[in-house]
Write a protein that binds this DNA or RNA. Structure first.
Lengths: 199, 199, 199, 199
DNA sequence: CATGAATGAGCCTTCATTCAT
DNA sequence: CATGAATGAAGGCTCATTCAT
């Protein structure tokens, strides 16, 4: 349901996406009603359907859009860095930054996959696997080059992603530690855990 | 009809809890209907209310029961071990074992806190904090004794718990790696990340 | 469902009647649930059915019992008085006294006739007509003897009964006027309205 | 389907009010179900909620509307009449006429106050007191001017209102006596009961 | 007699969705 | 495009009643 930019409806559609994201974040997909959403945007219930196809479709658009953004941004963040440990550092910094600045999106994608219909679920999972594969590839290459300890790539990928993603459940911009401190802490924890001592 | 021969209150209640847990795991709390639940247990909808007070109350009983089990089991698992690194190893092994064997419960507690009413939420969060504090105390003592690198205890606790808990989203008993292998992998990753090199 | 006096169940039955009357007075027949009633009496829901046949039957027993008491008491109150104006005074005094002392019963009979099933309704209405006829007969005889103004007996009966019955909606034993004062006021109002001036 | 051709919101709302009034009159508020009401109006149950907020709200709208009509109509009926006995006659005629022509409304307001939630109850009672005060003021002034016997104003007000209101429980337009005859009968009964003999 | 567990119908209300206007 | 009124299914929960224990 992407809208033509510039039309007056595009603004409404963006408002629906924004409010929908916030409401799903707050109440969950099942817990959000289209009544609420319409009220938030200042429309009648029926008018939503001039902008979205169904409730499920709205969720799907949000998740797909998010995953595409995420993958694009990851590519940009890693481009130009080739050395595996440097790429690992870059990945950690990118993931944490993204999860701190787009908390609602990442929260929803972690908690609402369950609400997707099978076909939609498969599509999003495929995108997520592309993301996971990027980290797995870094680890694989690092192990080949003896920069990273030999271990199970798949499980380690899951472990790292779980650790780095957890931040979206508790991070507050006005918290005790700032973004850089958090990135440093996680980077050190990860690299000490994985890198091979040089000397 | 009055009562099915052979049924007994306590057995029915256990059946409701078990089916409720499974359905919440599968569809989420908001996504599970009491109609489904009743059907699963082989009752009329209204009969559920001979055993539970409300739907919310069922969720709460499940979560409270789970947290109490978890805390009791943790105490048992750590008792007798004093040295911080040994306690850390024991904690990791316990947490992973528990999260592999009681996947539904831990999944629900991680994904459905949002569905608790404020009072219930506070109660469960308090129990969870007792659990987190146990890990935080291990880290604190380890740092004091110079066995663990100096770092932020709170954030490190969150990071480790997120990593170790992630397993409940993907672990399958018939997976490629067995329980011991998974525990070893996470233990090594964690201890290399945190422990101070001796020598 | 009258019970044998003296049995231990008789006490329970009386407790059910009393609590039932109070609850119907407070919430109405439709508004009272047998759950509430059982709780009030200290029984489980199912146990009520050892004492009453159905909810409707309980209402009916209450109303029938009340109407029989009322008719018996009226007979007693009027017996020995023959002169029509004296009988009218006696009727007024009796009716008011009864409606002040058994407010719940009279309230229920005035507000819950509607909740009776057709057969029961007819039975109670028949009893009530016997009561109304008593007043109508007094008025008729008074008119024949030229003690009471010529007017429509039926309508006047309704008007007087409505007026005298109204007291059950607002009377409080600790109110500003006592029973005698209220009886005097209504008696004077009625007799001036009806009696023929002598002289 | 979306909307039945020809239906309009205001008309549907009026149909709901009318059917609601009739059903509450017949079965009581607790005894009327919204299923019945919807069927009576030719809607699905849920569609009622495009027009009313809740069942309680429907009752409240009916009662409030009725009380406002009643007060407005009373003002109109008494305006221009100053002399207390004439005002009393006008009050009686107005009250009876209104209670004969809007039987359902007045029946409901007399029998369903009990079903109002506390806040709503207070609001309606306040309106009713304005109505009662109008009669009480007539009586007070009449006593001051020695046109009406000295007696308790409050209780007499209650007594008269109860008597005059009773008509809504039995009046039928095709009954033995017509409206004028009934008004005359009640007027004479009341005035003889209250007025001071002149000569 | 009392209990507790069951029934099946019914309660008020909300849901996502449709569509004539 | 927006609205308001409709749909039909489903939501959680309560009801009076029954009956094996």
């Amino acid at each position: 349901m992407a809208r033509k930019a510039g039309s007056s409806g595009a603004k409404t559609y963006e408002a629906i996406r924004a409010a929908g994201l916030a409401l799903i974040h707050r109440h969950g997909y099942e817990g959000m009603s289209l009544r609420q959403l319409a009220a938030e945007v200042g429309l009648q219930q029926g008018s939503l359907y001039n902008h979205i196809k169904t409730k499920q479709d709205l969720l799907m658009e949000l998740l797909r859009g998010h995953m595409q953004d995420l993958l694009r941004a990851l590519d940009a963040a890693l481009s130009g860095t080739e050395e595996p440990l440097a790429r690992l550092r870059a990945f950690i910094a990118f993931h944490l930054h993204y999860h701190m600045t787009r908390q609602a999106e990442v929260f929803v994608i972690n908690f609402e996959l369950r609400s997707l219909e099978p076909g939609n679920y498969a599509e999003i999972i495929a995108l997520r696997q592309r993301y996971e594969k990027c980290l797995a590839d870094i680890l694989s290459l690092g192990m080949q080059l003896k920069l990273i300890r030999q271990t199970d790539v798949q499980i380690t990928t899951y472990a790292l992603l779980a650790m780095l993603t957890g931040i979206c459940t508790w991070y507050r911009p006005d918290g005790r530690l700032n973004e850089k401190q958090l990135i440093d802490l996680h980077t050190e924890l990860t690299l000490r855990g994985l890198a091979i001592d040089k000397d």
